[in-house]
Nucleic acid binder design. Structure first.
Lengths: 161, 161
DNA sequence: CAGTATCCTACGTGATACTG
DNA sequence: CAGTATCACGTAGGATACTG
């Protein structure tokens, strides 16, 4: 009667959740994306217990999302994103945009993602067609890929209100 | 000594996690995006207990992400996405893309998102500049917005490996 | 500072029986 | 079919003391 694992599900979303689906994990990653690197910093930023933080960091290292290494200037270890971890950024940004829009702060945006070179804010996250047009949710359709044999393909969002 | 709630955090990502951060919630939403609408369908698709499913669906309805209504053709209730729910799509797609890339199935993609009109697959999710260029993770920077008063703005991903 | 090591709680979860 | 209602269980989570 253990908790069911998502690992066995043949679903890319479930696979992702199996890795970053625990409560604190995405908040830790947010901090890493914001430039925090040390155990100490995470602990104070999040107010999370040491044992949980340890466990989550180890998990992320084992999954190849973070790399643990000795910092250049000090003897203290630090955690930095791998390429695999950097690839999580669209997820983080999408969630941040959604929270900003649908659970807004009265003073406005809490964080703004800008292009490093120009300082200009990015567009809100959206699906984009091959030739670069922004697509709304109902312009899309999910189709079963080669790894999903005989699954009936429902029409994703036909006639939503 | 309760579990800490994320609600009070002044962070858009935490706000989002407070709503959709529980284990089953995103999988339920995936099913809704894939066209499932009825209690029965979710139950069989996910293999989740009725009580959990009930609780999650109620939560999503209360948050304004799903709308519960009587189906046109039958007396059975059905759950459909609201506009607020449809806005979650970039999150779902981002997570699906990540899972497909970093925990791949040997046969290839499990699901492909295509443009409804053309049938052509969409681009992989990415941040996009105001003038439409795709931006990589390290091209971006997070800046504190108006609602984040005196928070020190670390440099997000300076010199990651 | 960066963890380990304990101990404890309660929430998320699961199985199943029951109901309109 | 679409839930409610119980009951039981384990894991995430939390607090704190301790260590190299």
């Amino acid at each position: 009667m253990k908790h069911k694992s998502f690992d066995h599900m043949n679903c890319s979303l479930a696979q992702t959740l199996a890795v970053i689906g625990e409560r604190w994990t995405l908040l830790i990653l947010r901090d890493v994306f914001c430039g925090l690197r040390r155990f100490n910093q995470f602990e104070h930023s999040l107010g999370v217990s040491k044992n949980i933080l340890t466990s989550r960091l180890n998990r992320l290292v084992n999954e190849g999302i973070l790399q643990k290494r000795a910092a250049a200037d000090s003897a203290h270890p630090e955690y930095v994103l791998t390429a695999k971890g950097l690839d999580l950024q669209p997820i983080l940004i999408s969630m941040t945009h959604w929270g900003d829009k649908h659970r807004p702060h009265e003073d406005g945006a809490r964080v703004v993602f800008v292009e490093r070179a120009s300082g200009q804010p990015i567009r809100s996250m959206s699906a984009v067609s091959e030739d670069g047009r922004m697509l709304r949710a109902r312009d899309l359709k999910a189709r079963a890929g080669p790894a999903l044999a005989a699954s009936q393909s429902h029409d994703p969002i036909a006639e939503t209100p």
